[in-house]
Simulated scan of single mutants.
Amino acid sequence: MIIRLIQKNPKRATMLVKGVTFKLGSPTSCRVRMYNRSTGELLSETISKSNGSYILFAVQHTENYIIALDRDNELELATLDNLR
């Protein structure tokens, strides 16, 4: 799994967020991105494994949101909001 840290200062990443992506109830591989909720800054992105698992870098005590993008463009994106 490749995790790309987008932040200009990698020392800002203070925790990891783990999750699993699903499509119609089955784990799936797709692009997953984390953004800072107040600034919209892209913080981290990865592609989940075939079993849907992913890990993203995060910053504690800030509000973030995560989006998962369907590779086949068949479904709308999935969002997790207000992650702290």
Rank of each mutant, 00 (worst) to 15 (best):
S53K: 10
S50L: 04
L43P: 03
N64S: 11
L43E: 08
T46D: 09
N51H: 05
N64F: 00
A58Y: 04
A58G: 14
Y65F: 15
E63P: 01
D70V: 13
Q60Y: 07
S50T: 12
S53F: 10
I47W: 14
R71C: 13
S44N: 10
H61C: 07
Q60W: 03
R71I: 10
T46I: 00
S48L: 01
E63N: 03
S44D: 13
N51W: 06
E45P: 04
R71L: 13
I47Y: 15
S50I: 12
G52Y: 02
I47R: 13
L43N: 02
S53L: 08
R71V: 08
R71A: 14
I67F: 06
S50V: 12
T46L: 03
T62K: 01
A68N: 11
H61Q: 12
V59G: 03
L69P: 00
Y65R: 09
A68C: 14
N51C: 04
L69D: 13
E45K: 05
L56S: 09
I66G: 05
T46A: 08
F57N: 09
L69W: 06
E45M: 02
D72L: 10
H61I: 00
I67Y: 10
H61L: 08
R71Q: 15
S48W: 06
I66L: 08
S44T: 09
R71M: 14
S53P: 04
L43C: 07
V59H: 03
S44E: 05
Y54W: 14
S53D: 14
K49V: 04
E63Y: 08
I67Q: 15
E45I: 01
V59L: 03
N64R: 03
S44K: 02
T62A: 01
A58C: 06
A68Q: 06
T62E: 14
L69A: 13
E45Q: 11
L69E: 15
I47M: 10
N51D: 14
V59Q: 09
S44V: 03
E45Y: 11
D72G: 06
E63W: 05
S50Y: 14
I47F: 13
I55T: 09
A58M: 02
A68R: 00
I67N: 11
T62H: 01
Y65I: 05
E63D: 11
S50K: 12
S50N: 12
R71D: 15
E63S: 05
S44L: 01
I47N: 12
L56T: 09
E63T: 00
N51F: 03
A68W: 02
S44F: 04
T46W: 05
N64W: 00
Y54G: 07
K49M: 11
G52Q: 05
N64V: 00
